[in-house]
């Protein structure tokens, strides 16, 4: 089972290594990890997708909380959270296939950000499942390269962690 965990951490060197080191030595399986600055430049927000049962999720939260550089940790439930990923996909697209791929891009509502004689680059921001679907649809054509961010998430409404 996947758990979405959000943490506010000190924005200074070594913090990410402390967090990733913790995951490695406690044997936590991380599906994705995304880090970026927040409205306060001294704080970064980390979104972690961890795979495991409730015991693992609880351990991840408790162990993260123990780190001095971690200011706040919260587990985000799927229903009350907006989750997003960004993906860039470079697909092989010769003249014959180009329009088919453009159709998929239109249906999925994603942008074409680069084009060449032989390739198309698609940019897509959506829920992780939709990103999976786009990649699945493009599998039929030859995907040359993918760059995908980890999931980021915020609670809906006025709530914050």
């Amino acid at each position: 089972m996947q758990h979405t965990i959000a943490a506010l951490v000190e924005n200074k060197s070594g913090v990410l290594s402390r967090i990733s080191g913790l995951f490695a030595r406690r044997g936590f399986n991380i599906d994705s990890l995304a880090v970026g600055p927040t409205e306060d430049p001294s704080i970064s927000r980390i979104t972690i997708i961890v795979n495991g049962d409730n015991y693992i999720a609880e351990q991840v939260i408790k162990q993260l909380n123990k780190l001095i550089d971690v200011i706040k940790v919260s587990s985000l439930t799927e229903i009350e959270t907006t989750r997003r990923e960004l993906v860039l996909v470079k697909v092989k697209a010769d003249e014959k296939k180009r329009s088919e791929i453009i159709d998929i891009a239109k249906i999925m509502d994603c942008n074409i950000v680069d084009v060449s004689h032989t390739t198309l680059m698609l940019e897509f921001v959506n829920r992780p499942e939709r990103v999976d679907l786009l990649i699945d649809l493009l599998q039929k054509y030859q995907i040359l390269e993918i760059a995908r961010t980890g999931t980021i998430a915020l609670q809906k409404g006025s709530k914050s962690i």
Partner: peptide
């Protein structure tokens, strides 16, 4: 004193 020890 350490919440991480509870239930570990």
């Amino acid at each position: 004193i350490d919440p991480a020890e509870i239930g570990k």
